[in-house]
Design a protein around this nucleic acid. Sequence first.
DNA 1: TGTAGTGTTTAGTATATACTACACATATGG
DNA 2: CCATATGTGTAGTATATACTAAACACTACA
Lengths: 118, 118
Amino acid sequence: MAAEFGDYVRKCREKKRAQSADFSLRKLAQRVGIEPSYLSKVERGQESPPSEATISSLAKELDEDPDVLLALAGKVSSDLQKIIRKRPKLFAQLIREMKNMPNHAVVRVVREVRDGDW
Amino acid sequence: MAAEFGDYVRKCREKKRAQSADFSLRKLAQRVGIEPSYLSKVERGQESPPSEATISSLAKELDEDPDVLLALAGKVSSDLQKIIRKRPKLFAQLIREMKNMPNHAVVRVVREVRDGDW
DNA sequence: TGTAGTGTTTAGTATATACTACACATATGG
DNA sequence: CCATATGTGTAGTATATACTAAACACTACA
């Protein structure tokens, strides 16, 4: 249980809380649709991260990138998985080949894909 | 339970079996490390697909692409997930942008990534 | 005719996932 | 002082995952 997810969520929440009282553990939990005790344990890494749906809801409330939160939770968004599963060979090859590429190179590929007339 | 996974595995096994008697359900199950009854049910789609480890072992024995088998099982290889999770924003963007690209375009990107001097 | 091998049926299990429900302790403001 | 809100501790739950174990029925062949 890396607890990294919990730490991050707690930090985000406390940042939000500095500006709005709507971000107490209890209130956030309610909006997300889980019990406060559960959120408490999750934030302290005492429980493993919640489901994808709950993480997405959490991300939305906290104005965070769902993919990042999911990553911290050791997951990959199911919609991405679905895309990959439609062309497993191609995507597997592509992703594995990009594994060790430096960040700026990946950015360049992303841009090319976005702008190119594929 | 799409059963597509099971159907495919059974076909692969029967193809192999036409050439070698080592591909009876029982023998394959033994090499893979599961009970024959379980493999039987999986092949007929009566049970949901097995774990990633078991699928990989199955793929190896059947000379099939693990990524393809995993895809049929509704999964994405954990090593790919790990790569994505290291740079969730970049990969998420890239994959989503490639979602609707025609096959040949994806192939081209893969080639460029492989050959380019990124 | 029996025994070896085939796939299948039925019943059950251990572990993980994703939580809930309720009670408790502390602090804070009116 | 007490009502309210805060976070936390303890115990328990439903469902899914990933299987095992043992027995059954059929076929082949020696």
